[in-house]
Amino acid sequence: MKAFLKKILIGILLLFVVAQFFRPEKNVGSMESLKAFVEETKPSIEVQNILSKACYDCHSNNTNYLWYSNFTPVNYWMADHIVEGKEELNFSEWSSYSTKRKKHKMEEVYEEVEKKHMPISPYLITHSEANLTDEEIKLIVDWAKEQHNNY
Protein backbone atom coordinates (compact mmCIF):
# COMPACT_ATOMS: atom_id res chain seq x y z
CA MET A 1 0.00 0.00 0.00
CA LYS A 2 2.86 2.40 0.85
CA ALA A 3 4.51 1.73 -2.53
CA PHE A 4 1.22 2.41 -4.32
CA LEU A 5 0.73 5.70 -2.44
CA LYS A 6 4.32 6.69 -3.22
CA LYS A 7 3.73 6.05 -6.95
CA ILE A 8 0.57 8.16 -6.89
CA LEU A 9 2.39 11.05 -5.19
CA ILE A 10 5.24 10.86 -7.69
CA GLY A 11 2.70 10.81 -10.53
CA ILE A 12 0.97 13.89 -9.15
CA LEU A 13 4.31 15.67 -8.75
CA LEU A 14 5.29 14.81 -12.34
CA LEU A 15 1.94 16.02 -13.59
CA PHE A 16 2.43 19.30 -11.72
CA VAL A 17 5.93 19.75 -13.19
CA VAL A 18 4.77 19.02 -16.76
CA ALA A 19 1.80 21.38 -16.32
CA GLN A 20 4.24 24.25 -15.74
CA PHE A 21 5.16 24.13 -19.43
CA PHE A 22 1.60 25.01 -20.44
CA ARG A 23 0.55 28.57 -19.70
CA PRO A 24 -2.22 30.90 -20.77
CA GLU A 25 -1.42 34.07 -22.65
CA LYS A 26 -0.68 36.96 -20.31
CA ASN A 27 -2.64 40.20 -20.37
CA VAL A 28 0.35 42.49 -20.79
CA GLY A 29 -0.03 45.73 -22.66
CA SER A 30 0.71 49.34 -22.07
CA MET A 31 -0.75 51.79 -19.59
CA GLU A 32 -0.93 54.07 -22.65
CA SER A 33 -4.05 52.10 -23.61
CA LEU A 34 -5.86 53.85 -20.73
CA LYS A 35 -5.15 57.33 -22.07
CA ALA A 36 -8.50 57.75 -23.90
CA PHE A 37 -10.43 56.64 -20.81
CA VAL A 38 -8.56 59.01 -18.49
CA GLU A 39 -8.82 61.95 -20.90
CA GLU A 40 -12.56 61.48 -21.35
CA THR A 41 -13.58 60.73 -17.76
CA LYS A 42 -11.06 63.03 -16.05
CA PRO A 43 -10.63 61.15 -12.77
CA SER A 44 -8.86 63.03 -10.01
CA ILE A 45 -5.40 61.82 -8.97
CA GLU A 46 -7.02 60.07 -5.98
CA VAL A 47 -9.53 58.27 -8.21
CA GLN A 48 -6.78 57.37 -10.70
CA ASN A 49 -4.78 55.82 -7.87
CA ILE A 50 -7.79 53.80 -6.70
CA LEU A 51 -8.51 52.59 -10.24
CA SER A 52 -4.88 51.64 -10.65
CA LYS A 53 -4.67 49.61 -7.44
CA ALA A 54 -8.15 48.05 -7.49
CA CYS A 55 -9.49 47.89 -11.06
CA TYR A 56 -7.01 47.93 -13.91
CA ASP A 57 -5.50 44.46 -13.34
CA CYS A 58 -8.77 42.82 -14.41
CA HIS A 59 -10.45 45.63 -16.34
CA SER A 60 -7.75 46.79 -18.76
CA ASN A 61 -5.32 45.37 -21.29
CA ASN A 62 -2.47 45.48 -18.79
CA THR A 63 -2.24 43.26 -15.71
CA ASN A 64 0.48 43.55 -13.09
CA TYR A 65 1.33 39.89 -12.41
CA LEU A 66 2.67 38.81 -9.03
CA TRP A 67 4.99 35.84 -8.42
CA TYR A 68 2.24 33.26 -7.85
CA SER A 69 0.87 33.86 -11.35
CA ASN A 70 3.78 31.83 -12.71
CA PHE A 71 2.35 28.55 -11.46
CA THR A 72 -0.14 26.34 -13.24
CA PRO A 73 -3.07 25.99 -12.42
CA VAL A 74 -3.17 29.39 -10.66
CA ASN A 75 -2.29 31.18 -13.89
CA TYR A 76 -5.27 29.63 -15.69
CA TRP A 77 -7.60 30.60 -12.86
CA MET A 78 -6.29 34.18 -13.01
CA ALA A 79 -6.53 34.31 -16.80
CA ASP A 80 -10.18 33.27 -16.57
CA HIS A 81 -10.92 36.06 -14.07
CA ILE A 82 -9.16 38.61 -16.27
CA VAL A 83 -11.07 37.52 -19.38
CA GLU A 84 -14.36 37.76 -17.46
CA GLY A 85 -13.42 41.16 -16.05
CA LYS A 86 -12.52 42.55 -19.46
CA GLU A 87 -15.73 41.19 -20.97
CA GLU A 88 -17.71 43.17 -18.38
CA LEU A 89 -15.64 46.35 -18.60
CA ASN A 90 -12.36 47.11 -20.31
CA PHE A 91 -11.05 50.60 -19.61
CA SER A 92 -8.47 50.12 -22.38
CA GLU A 93 -11.26 49.74 -24.93
CA TRP A 94 -13.27 52.72 -23.62
CA SER A 95 -13.06 54.69 -26.86
CA SER A 96 -14.76 51.85 -28.76
CA TYR A 97 -17.83 51.95 -26.48
CA SER A 98 -20.98 53.76 -27.59
CA THR A 99 -22.21 56.68 -25.48
CA LYS A 100 -25.10 54.52 -24.25
CA ARG A 101 -22.69 51.75 -23.21
CA LYS A 102 -20.35 54.21 -21.46
CA LYS A 103 -23.28 55.58 -19.48
CA HIS A 104 -24.34 52.06 -18.49
CA LYS A 105 -20.79 51.04 -17.55
CA MET A 106 -20.40 54.07 -15.29
CA GLU A 107 -23.67 53.13 -13.61
CA GLU A 108 -22.34 49.60 -13.07
CA VAL A 109 -19.08 50.99 -11.66
CA TYR A 110 -20.75 53.01 -8.95
CA GLU A 111 -23.31 50.31 -8.16
CA GLU A 112 -20.76 47.49 -7.90
CA VAL A 113 -18.29 49.53 -5.85
CA GLU A 114 -21.00 50.95 -3.59
CA LYS A 115 -22.33 47.43 -2.89
CA LYS A 116 -18.74 46.27 -2.28
CA HIS A 117 -19.04 43.65 -5.02
CA MET A 118 -15.88 45.09 -6.57
CA PRO A 119 -13.04 44.37 -6.27
CA ILE A 120 -13.92 40.70 -5.94
CA SER A 121 -12.87 38.88 -2.78
CA PRO A 122 -10.42 36.44 -4.46
CA TYR A 123 -8.48 39.47 -5.74
CA LEU A 124 -8.41 41.02 -2.28
CA ILE A 125 -6.75 37.92 -0.80
CA THR A 126 -3.45 38.78 -2.48
CA HIS A 127 -4.02 42.49 -3.09
CA SER A 128 -4.88 43.91 0.31
CA GLU A 129 -4.18 47.42 -0.98
CA ALA A 130 -7.26 47.03 -3.21
CA ASN A 131 -9.54 46.65 -0.19
CA LEU A 132 -11.23 50.03 -0.48
CA THR A 133 -11.90 52.25 2.49
CA ASP A 134 -15.26 53.98 2.88
CA GLU A 135 -13.60 57.22 1.75
CA GLU A 136 -12.20 55.57 -1.39
CA ILE A 137 -15.58 54.01 -2.15
CA LYS A 138 -17.20 57.43 -1.86
CA LEU A 139 -14.60 58.96 -4.21
CA ILE A 140 -15.18 56.29 -6.86
CA VAL A 141 -18.97 56.36 -6.49
CA ASP A 142 -19.18 60.15 -6.68
CA TRP A 143 -16.86 60.30 -9.70
CA ALA A 144 -18.67 57.47 -11.53
CA LYS A 145 -22.10 59.04 -10.83
CA GLU A 146 -20.84 62.37 -12.19
CA GLN A 147 -19.55 60.62 -15.32
CA HIS A 148 -22.81 58.71 -15.67
CA ASN A 149 -24.74 61.97 -15.57
CA ASN A 150 -22.43 63.51 -18.20
CA TYR A 151 -23.44 60.93 -20.84
Rank of each mutant, 00 (worst) to 15 (best):
H148T: 06
I10G: 03
M31R: 07
K86T: 14
A3E: 07
T99P: 00
T126N: 14
K53R: 13
N62M: 06
H127G: 05
W94D: 14
M118I: 02
I12Q: 12
N90C: 03
H59A: 12
V109G: 03
K2Y: 12
Y68I: 15
P122C: 09
F71D: 07
A79E: 06
N27F: 12
S92Q: 03
H117T: 14
I140A: 04
P24N: 03
N131Y: 12
R101T: 08
A54C: 00
I8L: 02
E112A: 14
M106W: 03
F91N: 01
Y123H: 07
G11F: 02
E107K: 08
V28H: 05
K138R: 12
N27R: 04
L132F: 06
G29L: 04
L34S: 01
P43I: 02
L66V: 15
E39Y: 09
K103C: 01
L89C: 09
E88T: 11
Q20I: 01
W77Y: 15
E146Y: 07
H148W: 12
I12T: 10
E87M: 13
H148N: 04
E87P: 09
V141P: 03
V38Y: 14
S98L: 03
D142A: 07
V74S: 04
A130H: 10
E107S: 05
N64K: 08
V47T: 00
Y76D: 03
T126R: 09
L66D: 11
D80F: 15
A19N: 08
D134N: 11
S30A: 01
V18S: 03
Q147H: 07
Y110H: 10
R101S: 12
K102L: 00
W77L: 15
I45S: 13
N49G: 15
T126G: 05
I120S: 02
S95Q: 15
M1A: 12
D80S: 13
K26G: 03
A19R: 08
K2W: 13
L34W: 06
V83L: 15
A36T: 07
F16C: 06
H59E: 06
F71K: 08
H148E: 15
I82W: 01
L66T: 06
D57Y: 01
L15M: 14
E25V: 14
K116P: 00
P73V: 11
N49M: 09
L5W: 02
Y123P: 00
Y76M: 02
W67C: 02
H117V: 08
V18Y: 08
A144Q: 02
E87H: 14
Q147N: 15
H104F: 13
E107N: 04
L9R: 10
N70K: 07
P73N: 06
M78D: 14
E93W: 01
W94T: 13
E136W: 08
L5A: 01
A3T: 10
K6G: 02
E146W: 05
I12Y: 08
Y110V: 04
D57M: 09
K53L: 13
Y151K: 01
S95C: 11
I82V: 15
V74T: 12
Y110Q: 00
D142W: 11
P119C: 02
E107T: 04
I137C: 05
K116L: 06
K42W: 05
I120G: 03
E135A: 08
G11C: 07
T126L: 15
M78N: 02
V83A: 10
K35D: 13
S30M: 01
K145E: 03
D134A: 06
L124A: 13
V38A: 11
E114I: 01
L124W: 05
M106C: 01
L51T: 00
D57V: 11
T133V: 02
